[in-house]
Structures are given as C-alpha cells and as structure tokens.
Design a protein around this nucleic acid. Structure first.
Lengths: 217, 217
DNA sequence: CAGGATCCAGACGTGGATCCGT
DNA sequence: ACGGATCCACGTCTGGATCCTG
C-alpha cells in the first residue's frame, strides 16, 4: 500500500506527525508489508518502509526523495539516549568528476534533509523499534563550511590518485568508505603515478558524531 | 541442463554434428526447458536454447560466446530455400568511441563466427523447426573490406552528428537500426550543430542479403 | 519487405543501509 | 567503536533476437 506523495511541506509535516512514536510492527501492518526477522539480509528494509509511509516513489536517480520539495529522506538508527548507532550513507563517490562544492552530489543531497531517527537498540526486536520525532533540517553555514572542507580535501586526494590510501580516517563530519556488494567489485582508477588500476567503489558517509548533534537537539 | 563448454574447435564441431537436423522440440526436451507457444514474447528464446546446447555460459559481456576459442555464436532463421528471414543483430553502436576498424566491436564480433541456420518458415510451428548444418566461418579479406567500408561510413555519420538522419538504408552488408526496449528509450547525443539532444539507442545489423551468401554455400 | 519498433532474461548498477572483526 | 566488508530491492542496461506496418 503506497501513499500519495506530499505536495507541500505542510503535508509532509502532517505525515511526519503521524509517524512519530509508532512502532515498525505497527507501520508494516498498516502498509501491508511483511517484517523480516532481522536486518542481516534486509539492511535497507527500514529505510524503504519509511519511504513507503511518507510516499516517496523509491525510484528516481539523482533526484531527491521528494523531488517537488527538494527534500532528501534519511533514517538514523539511534539508541535510547538518541545517540546514532551507525554512520549515515550519503551518496556514491564519483571520482574524476571534479566540480565545485555547490554542484556536488553531497551538497545537493544534504542541503535539505528530513532526518527520521529510530530507536534501534540491538536488544530491541525489529518489530518493537519505534520512530522518534522526525527532524526537518536545512544545512546551516557553519555546517556547510565543515562539510565543504571535508569534501574538497577528500576529492582532492582522489583526483591526485591517492584513492588506495584514502581510508575512512580522513574527514571531520564526512568520510569515505567502501560501497559495493563486496570487496571483489572493482572499478577503474588512475593512481598517483598515472597508472591504470582498480579500486573498490566508494561512498560518502556522515560520521555518527555529526548526526548525533542533530538527533540530540 | 547446461552442457560443458567445448575446450577445442574439434569439440565444438562434434557438438555441432549433434545439433544438425534436430528439431527445437527435441532439443528443448533434452535440455529440460519448456517451449513457448511462439516467439512474440520470447524473441531470444531460440538463440538461448542453442547457446545452452552448445555450452556457452550466456553471460560474459564484451567477450565472445566461446571465449577460449574466440568464436561468436549467431543463429539465423531461414526458409526452406536457405534464405534468411531476418537481418542479424551484431552489437550495439557505441557513439563517440571512435576507434579503428580492427578495434571495433563489429570486427571482433564477426571475425570468427559459428552460424547456426534454423529452418523457420512462418507456417512451421516452433517445435517443428529444425537446425540446418552449422557453419564455422572466418571473415575473409573481401568481406572484411566491405564491412569495414560500411562501418567507417556509418561511424563517420554518427561522429559528425547525423545520427537522427542515419536510417537503415545506409550500408551494403552492415546497417544501423534501433536497438532498445521501445522508441521512448533515449540516450544522449550531440547533433551536427553541436547541440545536446537525444536519440534512440542503435545497433549494427547484417542485412539478409549478406547472410544469404553464407547459408547457401 | 525493408526499416523502424519492440520483447524477454539475466547481468549490472545504485540507493536503501547495517554487519562485524580487530 | 571504527572502518572495511557486505546485503537486498529494483531499475536499467545488454545480449538474445523477431515483430509488424506502410
């Protein structure tokens, strides 16, 4: 059962009110989808459940989840104390497409986000996990400055051919980690010496230390 | 039931002998695959049946059907008089990748081909269609000269931006036709004036007049 | 009947993320 | 607890070709 996509921010916020406090069992029953035993073989299940409830089409590449509103949806697993349990995936890294920050996928994905924190302590069964209050958020100048610096430094390392040395240790809010089916997946890359090589596809992620600020406000 | 891939040309020719004269009903029974009522919703079925019988893996992109032998497999529907009923698809057209003929996908697909003609008169039910004698063929210099000229002229028209005017009328042996799910599928293209536009994805095909020469020898 | 349009299966890529060893 | 590794769904692309109308 798919809902209609909200046409205005007010409609979206109404839908968010109807989401806060509800359990995943509750939501999946209303939407008539079956609930998996755990997330090991369904890692994206919660995110897709929330997408369905809020009425995003779940397809559409390169467009925000709510295209007419320009808003991106991100779920965040948190513990009882509103502390994120995981980093948050932002988008794939496009090596060799050097643009300005404002043209980047990262900026455009994070400019305007609906964060949906979900109480997800590991001892809490999937069905009993509950939605906290969704947060409609816009990137502020200070945050942008930090993200921009992170992005520029990380992209520069990639451009210069240091992709293999680019570990998840770099970056204040944003960092780069593998993003692939497994480590056998490889894509073309040109290293610092100008030689053709292969690296595992990578993605941008927000560190939990960053999203913690959002969830605790 | 998948067979092993032939490791030598001799093994491949043995397999071909076992194929000649047999009906599609016979083959599909041996391979334990169900036979469709007609080809309208299974246009590639015959080709895939023959692939299975001859032991090609059916995956592998950019590689020949028999990678270790460097041989490509092509089925050709023919009538009682060995005249092809259709043109033969070769490969997709890669606009904006101008290389030399010998580096082209067309040359490499057609250098060494196992043609499998199949009696396919329209009044003959799918199950009753029979395999004629497979033909293991290598491109000869005269054929290459004609194919090369066709390919160079067609590619030049594409490079120069005349993709929209490039109809299937051009080319002696080889021509270009749409190759997509339907005519709504579009891909980026730069026209003769240098403007960005969209065209339907295209493929190279061999005219029936060309394959007729092969089937009648 | 030639040329433009179309159809399926299966591989591949991307967006949704969490898992889990050190 | 962090960073490298991994997992599913689903849309898109590609290779297998034939359909079908003017």
């Amino acid at each position: 059962m798919q809902k209609f996509m909200p046409q205005t921010i007010d409609e979206l916020q109404e839908r968010c009110k109807a989401l806060a406090g509800r359990s995943l069992a509750d939501l999946s029953q209303e939407l008539n989808v079956s609930i998996p035993e755990n997330l090991l073989h369904a890692k994206g299940w919660v995110g897709q459940l929330i997408e369905t409830f809020l009425g995003c089409s779940a397809n559409s590449k390169a467009l925000p989840d709510f295209p007419n509103l320009g808003i991106e949806l991100k779920t965040i697993p948190i513990n009882r104390n509103y502390k994120p349990l995981e980093s948050t995936y932002v988008c794939t890294v496009q090596a060799n497409t050097c643009t300005h920050w404002r043209d980047s996928w990262v900026y455009n994905k994070l400019r305007h986000v609906l964060w949906v924190p979900i109480f997800s302590d590991p001892d809490l069964a999937l069905k009993d996990r509950k939605i906290a209050s969704p947060i409609l958020w816009q990137m502020d100048p200070e945050t942008e400055a930090t993200l921009r610096t992170d992005w520029e430094e990380l992209m520069e390392m990639l451009q210069l051919g240091f992709g293999k040395k680019l570990s998840a240790k770099f970056g204040t809010y944003l960092h780069i980690r593998p993003k692939a089916a497994n480590s056998d997946v490889l894509q073309d890359y040109i290293d610092e010496a100008g030689n053709k090589t292969k690296i595992v596809p990578k993605g941008f992620y927000l560190r939990a230390a960053f999203t913690e600020q959002l969830c605790k406000t």
